[in-house]
Design a protein around this nucleic acid. Structure first.
Lengths: 328, 328
DNA sequence: TTGAAAGCGCTAACAT
DNA sequence: ATGTTAGCGCTTTCAA
């Protein structure tokens, strides 16, 4: 910046002014400075800018997600990213792989990187660290999972209703022994989905059988294992509702290994519709979450809050959609 | 930091020393300072640290990838991340979605964030900006794609050989009219795969028919469209080799729409093996790339180079593996 | 073993 | 319209 100032015969303050389009600068001077900037290929330091002033935007957003291997979050991320990009924000992406220690590590980094705002899907709703960040005034938007007792913007999907739709669909098709393979119980959405599952059964006067509800790790391996257990029951289920896309894949693998036909021997509907759902064997009936939209909305809310920190918190609840294919 | 110093009755220099374990500090003093740090829950500013010294590591790595929607890169990213995390590095993730404008935007940000090093899969091998960054001394490791005429660490897969294996497999099964649906031709790996495809045909005395080679966008849509074209030929292919996982999904969709049986009517082998490959209809024969390993190795190389900037460049070429399932 | 002070690259009063 | 200057929070000589 010094070099620019010297070459252009002005002070660094003026250079700063043209860089930020702030204050008033003589058109001629501006042109001259702009030229020097181009000639010298000057790249301003975002780091110095960030250090200097909290007041000015450093154009950096933090994103904290639970599992980048889950295409759902990738889709959310894309929504975030598109909005961030159009608004000239970069993203500090932190994936904690469902590991709370790792989450803590990243949260600390996020705190000390002077980000303008954060979009987070915390491992659990009681996260003290994240709550503190909110209280200290960092603009935060939660996605997919909320924060208990904390007033914060949030974008989620109606998980209970989504699960309800899935199970009701199964019941209407005549299934009686419907199992649910859940993800981590610490994740709110897992619980809401279980609630929806139970609500549907109850509503249609079907018993809720504890042996048909299995809790896993939200991953492929869990889905595989738990489905194996289910199929080994002396009276196995005639339909399965799987708690997320990775679990679905695991369950599918298990069903195929047991040489069961879908949907004749066993029906399956999964939470999360993916790009490959239609190419599965058979094409999967699924509950579609508007993942891209979740990310997009969350980022919009965040940008809003950054420019208007005092505005009231918004809870955005997006709808799911039942996509009927061949697995039911 | 000032607060800490005051409360502990020392200067900020000493606080800095204990934070970084540098210089010598009286054990007693250190303990006192450590206590105050804990009491005040002091979080050092990574930004200030980065600004101050190029010499000390700011523990920030940049990652530039072409398409986060492609699970291959997600897997690479996970490899990078695991290594970065164990070494206390954070990651500034930049996904340019195959968009060169976006790539440029991110490259500029990366340049001005004072990162310690960069792992990049550039849109093309002639990228001037990236080349400049290498020349200016930024530690860079390329993955999946290289940089022409530039001495730089690189981790790739033997694309030509992988494609060769896929096509040779098809030929041995008796297929004569084998098509190739390619991704973007600007991507080196697309070209190497095409080379492997042609080498196999030639080796086995099969003609290379231009009408059977289609070039697309490396995405689902491209795979779908191009496969439609192929199947509409008066003499359609009896086997297809698809250039990446997304293309494969699109091709599968097209084949199913045309109500063709796999592999009876048409066989298919895809580049990239995915977690869901085994659950597809039918289970997919595929060329597996060690994606996680690519990321892991790349990150290891980068960390090495950061600590030893002068060491000679390494070109690492990983092997692919043919996974035979039911689609051939 | 410790402290004082310069300065990393920038912004934002405050002057002029 | 432009320049001067004081920091932002830290590291790193250099002295003591």
């Amino acid at each position: 910046m010094n070099d620019i100032a010297r070459k252009a015969g002005v002070s660094i303050a003026t250079v700063s002014r043209v860089m930020n389009n702030s204050g008033s600068v003589n058109d001629e001077t501006r042109a001259r400075i702009l030229k020097v900037i181009k000639d010298l290929k000057y790249q301003p330091s975002r780091v110095a800018k960030r250090l200097r002033s909290k007041s000015v935007s450093s154009n950096l957003l933090g994103v904290l997600i639970p599992d980048i291997q889950n295409p759902f979050y990738v889709e959310v991320l894309r929504g975030i990213e598109d909005i961030a990009y159009t608004n000239n924000y970069a993203i500090l992406m932190c994936n904690y792989s469902q590991d709370e220690k790792k989450e803590k590590f990243y949260l600390e980094i996020l705190q000390s990187e002077s980000i303008d705002g954060l979009i987070a899907a915390p491992a659990n709703e009681h996260d003290v660290q994240l709550k503190n960040m909110v209280r200290e005034g960092l603009p935060v938007v939660c996605v997919d999972r909320g924060l208990e007792d904390e007033d914060v913007d949030i974008v989620v999907v109606d998980n209970r209703q989504g699960a309800y739709k899935a199970v009701a669909h199964l019941i209407k098709l005549g299934h009686k022994r419907i199992a649910y393979i859940s993800g981590l119980q610490t994740i709110p959405s897992s619980r809401y989905r279980e609630q929806g599952y139970m609500d549907a059964l109850t509503e249609y006067n079907l018993p809720v059988l504890p042996e048909l509800v299995r809790h896993g790790d939200s991953k492929y391996e869990g889905g595989l294992e738990l489905c194996d257990e289910l199929l080994s029951l002396q009276e196995p289920p005639d339909a399965i509702f799987t708690g997320n896309n990775l679990i679905t894949l695991g369950a599918l693998e298990s069903i195929h290994t047991h040489r069961l036909r879908i949907p004749e021997d066993i029906a399956i509907v999964g939470f999360d519709d993916m790009i490959w759902s239609n190419s599965l064997n058979p094409p999967l009936t699924a509950i579609r979450q508007p993942a891209y939209d979740i990310g997009k909305r969350a980022c919009e809310l965040l940008l809003q809050r950054i420019s208007e920190p005092a505005r009231a918190c918004i809870k955005m609840i997006l709808k799911t959609e039942l996509i009927i294919r061949k697995s039911t």
